[in-house]
Structures are given as C-alpha cells and as structure tokens.
Design a protein around this nucleic acid. Structure first.
Lengths: 192, 192
DNA sequence: GTCTATAACAAGATAGAC
DNA sequence: GTCTATCTTGTTATAGAC
C-alpha cells in the first residue's frame, strides 16, 4: 500500500528535519512518486503528519501497556527496572521513532491544534500516574524508603527522559551500556 | 542599537517556532521595521541565527564557569548541588533561552555547518569532563561511594537534562520546587 | 539605516488528462 | 492513482530611492 510507504518515509523526514524543515517533494522523491500523488492519500501535509503521529502514538501506547502489565508479577525492583530498561530499549532500537517522539513532545509544530496534542499529553500524563502508583505500592510494601511517591516518580522520569536526551545528542552507538549503571545509582537511593 | 533588538526578537521566535518555522517577516514585524531592513544588520537569515547562537552560547559559558569556580570552596555535596540547582535556575528563569538552547542541542537546523555546531558540542563535552573530575575528587576524598566517576557523572547529567526536559514539557509555573526532592533522591544513592 | 519595489524561488495545493 | 501543468502564497534576498 502506497499510503503506508508515504507514512514511513514521512516519519523519517519529520524525525530528522522537523515538520517545517520537511517538504512534500522530499518525501515524494524518496517514495518514488511525484509530489501531487501524495494528495491521493492524504488531504494535506498536516494530515500526513497527523497520521504519522497517530501511528507512532498507538505503537508506543501498546508497547508501554505490554511492558507495564507484563512485568507486574516480577519482584518489585525488577518491575521498576524492567519498565525503565524496556522504555529505553524501545527507543534505542529505533532512533528515527525516538527522535520523532521526543521532537513532537518537546517542540510540536507551531499552531498544532489541540486535537493533535491533547491525546499525546494524556498518554504521557498516564505514564506519570502509573509510575506514581507503583511507587505508592512499593512504599506501602516496604520495598522503597519512606517518602513522597510523587517525588520518586518524578526523579524516575527525570532519569528516563534524561537518558533519552543524552542518547539523542550522543554519537555513541552503544549507549545502552550506561543504563545499568544509571539504574544502580538511582536504586541505591530509592530502596528501603 | 537595532541589531541587538533584532537579535533579541529573533531569539524569541527561533526559540518558540524553530529555525525553519520562523520567517524574517515575523521578526521584522515585532521589531517595528520592515523585512529588508534586517539585511542592513545581518547578511542572511542564517547569519542572524548564528549571531543568536553565539550570544546564547557565550552567556551560558560565562555563567557556567562562574558557577563552577564560585562554588568550588563549598562543602562537597553543596558544591555538586549548587551546580545542579544553579544550572536549573539559570534556565528556568528564562524559558525562552532554555527552549532555544535545548532545541539547538537536540534538533539543530538541518544542514547546519560544523563551524556552528562544533563549539557548541565542545561546550557540553567540557561540562561532562568537569563533572567527572568533581566525582573523581569526591570518591578519592571519601565523600562519594566507590564506583565509576564516569557513570556517576552520567547519572548526574541524566538527572539534570531530564529535569530540564520535564520543565519544557510541563505547564507548571513553579517547577523548581521539585528540584530539592530530585536531588535528595540522587544524593542518597551517591554519598559514601 | 530604512523604505518600496521586485526579483527569484520554493512550497503547499488543485485541475484535469490518462 | 499517478502524472504534467499550473495556481497561489510565502519566503529569502537584492536594487535603488530617500
């Protein structure tokens, strides 16, 4: 299906050059069609962008849900670390998706309608809530030191987002080796 | 001086909409002049951008140097925390500068010449080296637990970058309240 | 230094043949 | 669905008067 190929190429270009920096001619050229042919599949440039957002968003949502529910039976530290490492691995194994994701998150195209951004924000808000719930459970069960679950969740997400940030800005091909060390430093301060 | 005013307005627009999303007409309009007048002060759009990068870069460099050298006589934890909180405060008190800085760092304009990006990368590389040196000292003097100073510095910077990331994506006006909590979580795991 | 006017071009989008 | 041709708009940039 041509629409899917257009979306895949668009993802790559939006990821590398941003929404404004990408032209439909760039995309069409790599797909192997001419620019007007895109309009047979998408109503506008922004419509194409929205489709890519939807695809990336849904893939991410499904993956995250699988990871969180799939590791809930683990030992507490393992559960938390599994979410941490799985999210990092998810993005590291596909840097195009990662750059698109982070770019949209931090610097969405100017004048993006709320209809596009709101589901995206909610998706990330949900993650915060889930992590807070995990820490609440960890504290009440004695796995985690006494303290504010909100603050711990926040620190956890700072570490996760910071790790992704540093992967993006780094040329290092195998950044994942740092993951375990970062985690140990965090867990040493969080455990009961 | 008109050139300075153009730069200031350009900083704001580049920060909010990115390089490609900003037009010279946007900038000129807010400055109060017409578009062609910009060319009396800057050779090209990119030349204006480069001037803004230079200004922001130098301001950041000077501030960071002041913070690091100015707190080196402090107690070890205070020294580390002071750098952490000062860097965060620096960006929080000027979100325009923060967004410009992070945007350039993570997603520089496509086809930016190396001449623009290299000094910028070196600036950040230097910071990593300085933080590593501080942890090396901290370990040898017994303030920090035994371990790899590289890994600790990396964790420290993940936390710092992650914090800034979360400030950018958050609407919360007073995000700085979280800073102390994040720090305590880190230090609990890092101290000897 | 700032302006009007305009060049030169690229980009998103449409019309209509095939 | 894809193409060529075209429209329209917006953009960077220059020329030349004041």
């Amino acid at each position: 299906m041509t629409a899917k190929k257009i979306q895949a190429v668009a993802l790559k270009h939006f990821s590398q050059k941003g929404y404004d920096g990408t032209s439909l001619a760039d995309i069409a050229g790599e797909v192997g069609i001419k620019k007007p042919s895109i309009y047979a599949h998408f109503e506008s440039k922004f419509d194409l962008f929205a489709a890519v957002v939807e695809e990336v968003s849904e893939d991410y949502r499904a993956y995250r849900q699988t990871v969180i529910s799939g590791s809930s039976s683990m030992d507490f530290e393992q559960h938390l670390f599994n979410i941490f490492s799985s999210m990092i691995t998810y993005f590291i194994q596909d840097r195009v998706k990662m750059a698109f994701w982070v770019r949209l998150w931090m610097f969405p195209p100017a004048e993006s309608p709320e209809a596009l951004l709101e589901p995206w924000k909610n998706l990330n808000k949900t993650f915060l809530d889930e992590v807070i719930a995990i820490f609440e459970q960890g504290i009440s069960e004695g796995h985690v030191r006494q303290g504010s679950p909100q603050d711990m969740a926040h620190t956890y997400l700072c570490l996760l987002d910071g790790f992704l940030t540093r992967v993006i800005i780094s040329d290092d091909a195998d950044y994942s080796q740092h993951m375990t060390q970062v985690w140990q430093c965090f867990w040493a301060g969080a455990k009961a």
